[in-house]
Write a protein that binds this DNA or RNA. Structure first.
Lengths: 343, 343
DNA sequence: AAGCATATTGCAATCGATTGCAATATGTCC
DNA sequence: GGACATATTGCAATCGATTGCAATATGCTT
């Protein structure tokens, strides 16, 4: 039998019940040591008895802090799809937990929401103290605008070193290089790249792909780079098409995401191509499913946990008057069946 | 060259600049027809010039409406994992879009956040006007409490007909029945059920499983129901174990989620069991990857789009003084390779 | 020209909590 | 007993917008 308050209690109600002023009540509830211990205790007890909760709106108005961070997930302008890649979900979960741990709420915005002017909507209107933008996408001018407007924000994406706002992201170039070098080690000679290089993260992966080839004395062929959206379907269709085209014979594929890789795998298997014997395949992200497809997928694992924590840490530091710096996170190659030929 | 406001503009600034009172300015900005058209225009122009945005906090305080909905994703008490199933991501995206369309913001809370008392934290504190709870999980008392507290909320889960709060969800029982009937039609005689029936949604699926067997004159064996978490890993391990145990020979598996099914598939293939010839497999959810594993996965498709829209519609109706009703959404069997034996 | 309806605008209270500063009470020292 | 330091508490302003009601202006009627 919980007491069901007829109407919401306010601080003034609590103060009256405790026989103190609102200021004392307010201080008592916030454990301000200047208030006498007994008074403090009494006020807190009464507040608890009446299930009093501070009105977050009033507090925000007065303190000029919302204690809320807006997380914006950029959607692909082309596919119009919001969050689809399981990878996003991973990092989103980490960010959510970390924000909570730090006492912040998370306002989530996806796809169409972002038609809005983020700065106006979230920051100028005081809905949020700062922004986390996930996925730079294809060079978004809106991100650039943010940096001119004094809005505290951090981006998950590709730190190229040239942007003038803080970007946290995996070392995509290094990851791709590891992956492609691995393919070369497994004996691949002609490796296709599946991914849309208009996304800056993917562009970095493509650079890593080229690095690896060049290090092995192989000249990258432009026609082996095939623009592919972030979906299994796109990977499937692109691979089918590649197999029918006059690309010549491939013996390796590096896909810019695991979802793409799985689509590619499907197409290959349908065509009776043996993976990894005839063609070795490597993805990127290490989503949960990668270990459980057949053959299991070799991939580059991003440290989403570190990434999420870092995004939050940098943003909060920035909000609290400090600086936020770009940072590259190390990645790791996870070798599985799709590329291991057992020499 | 955007004008960079030295400090944030307030309504009073705009009023002063326009030479009108704050009340007139406020009304003008909200397109109140009582204000003279010219005045209205002038105020709006000035506001636009100075990139004025209404302070959402102040408005909320005054109007007593946050125009925010808290979405709570229940995590599994056991695995301690937050959002992992791709299915959640789907429905979350739909809800986000729909809330945006309706002019609401979305406060997302996962896993550890939910240690809090939701009612206090989100509703009593006026952070949100209502709650959407996703995943009833294993009979959560906290959901029950909400319904006693007059908080507007809706749940995505299993509408059993006995709960006294609005639940929107797929017709899990019907879906399972379709799936298992399909397996029987394909000639399966002994079908295992992989899923944790302590989750009410899964319980409904188990009932549907039993319905189908009984309709075919088969007596369900309790030992063929194997509790399994919502992950590919759990499906994999459980299936491995099942194959080594003295369950006798199975020729069909109905998994309570696609992720579980994919784990199961992995285990089967590793053991050289031919899918679907020796053992047919059906999942639930129709996540994006299901069409792209090999063999592709037969599954029961949930209408996440309708579900998300309905959740939002019902909640807003409830907030606006109306009623919210539980509702069952129809599902659809998607037949793919993992179960089709071509008779 | 007085009377009254209608169109616009402004005054001032209000939403609920926080906080700088002043006020009071208590204790200590010489 | 007076002076002064310290511990507690309260007053009142403030955050920024919204809104009921009153005030003023304008136009029309007879």
């Amino acid at each position: 039998m919980t007491i069901k308050p007829a109407k919401t209690m306010t601080l003034s109600d609590i103060a009256r019940l405790a026989g103190v002023s609102e200021s004392t009540a307010s201080r008592a509830l916030r454990d301000n040591p200047v208030i006498n211990a007994q008074t403090r205790q009494k006020v807190q007890q009464i507040a608890a008895d009446h299930q009093f909760k501070v009105n977050a709106t009033a507090r925000s108005l007065r303190t000029q802090k919302s204690h809320t961070i807006a997380v914006i997930i950029l959607f692909d302008a082309k596919t119009q799809q919001a969050i689809t890649d399981p990878f996003l979900l991973d990092i989103l979960g980490v960010i959510a937990d970390e924000l909570t741990r730090q006492g912040y709420d998370m306002l989530l915005s996806t796809s169409k929401t972002t038609d809005k002017d983020w700065r106006s909507y979230y920051f100028d209107s005081k809905r949020a103290d700062g922004l986390i933008v996930i996925g730079q996408g294809e060079h978004d001018e809106r991100v650039e605008q943010l940096s001119n407007a004094g809005v505290p924000f951090v981006v998950w994406g590709a730190a190229t070193g040239t942007e003038h706002f803080p970007v946290i992201g995996s070392d995509n170039r290094q990851g791709a290089q590891l992956a492609v070098t691995h393919l070369l080690t497994q004996g691949c000679k002609r490796i296709a790249f599946l991914g849309d290089i208009r996304h800056s993260e993917i562009e970095m992966r493509y650079l890593g792909y080229q690095d690896a080839l060049q290090a092995a004395g192989i000249k990258p062929e432009a026609k082996l780079q095939l623009n592919t959206d972030f979906t299994a379907q796109a990977g499937y269709l692109q691979t089918q098409q590649a197999l029918f085209s006059e690309l010549g014979s491939l013996d390796g594929i590096f896909a810019a995401s695991d979802a793409i890789a799985m689509g590619a795998m499907k197409a290959l298997l349908e065509h009776g191509i043996k993976v990894p014997q005839q063609l070795a395949l490597v993805g990127f992200d290490d989503i949960a499913m990668s270990a459980y497809c057949t053959p299991s997928l070799t991939t580059v694992k991003q440290d989403t946990h570190a990434g999420g924590k870092l995004l939050v840490a940098q943003l909060l530091s920035r909000i609290n008057g400090g600086k936020a710096a770009s940072q590259l996170l190390p990645v790791k190659l996870i070798e599985r069946q799709s590329s291991l030929r057992g020499n």
